[in-house]
Amino acid sequence: MKRLESRHWVFIGLFLVVLLSMLLQVDLGVEVSSDTTRLFDYIENLPPGSTIMISFDHEASSLPEIRPLALAVLRHAFARNQRLVGVALLAEGTGIGYRLMEQVGKEYGKVYGEDYVFLGFKPQYIAAMLSMGESIRQTFPEDYLGRSYDSLPMLQGVRNYDQIAGVISIADGSLTTHWIEYAGNQYGVRVSAAVAAAMVTTYDPYLASGQLHAMIGGLRGAAEYEQLIHQGGSGLRGMLAQTTAHMYVILMILIGNVVYFRGRRKRGEG
């Protein structure tokens, strides 16, 4: 059998650490950050009945991280009786977005077509964003279920971004940037985001400049949001696994440095 290299041991260690943490199911709780509070306050303070566009701008791969974020935001918005328009600008977000809206809609007794709709997927995201700035109806003549735009009571009077209180982009990549640059800058719609942890620092400059109104990021962001809406979910449950994985990475960094400095001393460089 081929001898395992050091990286294989690193992989095995991480797998075991995360697996054990998932099995333990301990709720650690988190301190809520100002970024998360900002998004919460934004949805909380919108007048009930406002129309929010939720854009599922992610692929299937990031679902374990995106799902708790999306669920927390959807639960809060439905609890505040906001009306939600779902769209997907990446093909893989389509089925996922519909299922999530349907699931949370049922939890809160919401009626499709009256309290929420899902318009489905439109390719070429920049074109779709620009097009919705002129006419959402022309961009999505039918919803995801094949019903015509005009037959959906909730959408009566919703022409373009002027009738949308804000867009929340649920993203694992750079699509939020396009929402900011095209929908935000050109049509003046307020853009917020719920993004994968790896993308948080990418959007920090936009958040600081005010081009991005509010943002929550990663499993930690989801856990904080769940804490704010007093509804535990996979964000809070996943915090133990995330914490132990982070500790494991820190341990690996420390071991790596010990190995490095011992090697240097042996070579007489230290």
Binding site: A127, S131, E134, S135, Q138, T139, P141
Partner: peptide, 12 residues
């Protein structure tokens, strides 16, 4: 109905 953005009704 197919999507033909060139037919957009320009509200402005």
């Amino acid at each position: 109905m197919p999507f033909y953005p060139v037919q957009l009704v320009l509200l402005n």
